[in-house]
C-alpha cells in the first residue's frame, strides 16, 4: 500500500496508537481544509469554526471506531460533514425540497426535444455581484442535503467523482446523477433572475 505523500504530516499509525502529538500534528495540517469544507456547507463563519473544533474532538474520542477502509483524513472529513449536516438541520433551513419538487425543476422533454425554450443568461448585466451571491445561496438553501453536498464537494471543493463518492458513501453513478440534477434545479431556480429577457 503506497503512502500518500500529500498527507505526510498525518502519521496514522502513531495517531491510532494514542500519540497525542501526532494527533495534534494532524489538527495543524488539516484544520484549514476542514474549515473550508464546513464553511462551504454551512455558510456561517462562527458555526464553521466551532464545528471544526467539535469534529476533531469527536475524531479523537472515536479513534477506536476508525476501520481503516479509507484514509484517516477522509474519515475525519466524514465526521465534519455529519456535524455540518446536523447543524444545518437544527439551525438553518426552511424545509428543503422533496424529490417531487426536485423533479419539477428538471427540464421536460417530448419526443426527445425540450418542451420549454431558453433565453441566454447574462448574469453580470442582470445583477450585482453581492446580489448574485445572495440569489445563489438562496437557491442552494432549497436543495436537500443529498443534492447540496455533491455541489459542495464537486463544484466548490472541486473533488473528483471518486473522492466525493467515498466521502459520502455512495456510488460514483449516484454522485453524477445527483450533481446533474442539482445543477439543473439550480438552473431553474436562477433562471428568472438571469435570463436577459427578464431584466
Amino acid at each position: 500500500m503506497p503512502n500518500a505523500p500529500s498527507s505526510s504530516r498525518v502519521d496514522t499509525e502513531a495517531i491510532l496508537n494514542g500519540d497525542r502529538a501526532a494527533f495534534e500534528a494532524m489538527v495543524e495540517s488539516e484544520t484549514s481544509r476542514l474549515f473550508h469544507i464546513i464553511l462551504r456547507y454551512v455558510n456561517d463563519d462562527e458555526a464553521a469554526r466551532s464545528l471544526v473544533q467539535e469534529t476533531f474532538l469527536q475524531a479523537y474520542k472515536n479513534l477506536d471506531s476508525f476501520r481503516g477502509d479509507s484514509k484517516l483524513t477522509s474519515w475525519v472529513i466524514g465526521i465534519g460533514i455529519n456535524l455540518a449536516r446536523s447543524w444545518l438541520r437544527k439551525n438553518k433551513r426552511q424545509q428543503p425540497m422533496d424529490e417531487e419538487a426536485m423533479e419539477r425543476l428538471q427540464p421536460d422533454f417530448r419526443f426527445g426535444r425540450y418542451t420549454g425554450s431558453f433565453e441566454p443568461w447574462d448574469p453580470e448585466q442582470t445583477a450585482e455581484r453581492t446580489e448574485r451571491k445572495k440569489l445563489v445561496h438562496k437557491a442552494l438553501d432549497e436543495l436537500s442535503d443529498s443534492y447540496r453536498e455533491v455541489i459542495v464537494l464537486r463544484d466548490l471543493e472541486e473533488r473528483s467523482t471518486k473522492e466525493t463518492a467515498e466521502l459520502l458513501n455512495i456510488s460514483r453513478g449516484a454522485v453524477r446523477v445527483r450533481l446533474h440534477r442539482a445543477r439543473q434545479a439550480l438552473r431553474s431556480l436562477l433562471n428568472p433572475h438571469f435570463a436577459s429577457d427578464f431584466s
Binding site: 431558453f118 445563489v136 442552494l140 466548490l156 445543477r183 438552473r187
Partner: peptide, 19 residues
C-alpha cells in the same frame, strides 16, 4: 442555450463560494 445556462450555473455557484 441550455449548455450556456448550465455552465453559467456552475460559475455562479463558484462565484458564491463562502471561502
Amino acid at each position: 442555450t441550455y449548455l450556456q445556462q448550465y455552465r453559467a450555473t456552475i460559475d455562479l455557484v463558484k462565484e458564491a463560494d463562502p471561502v
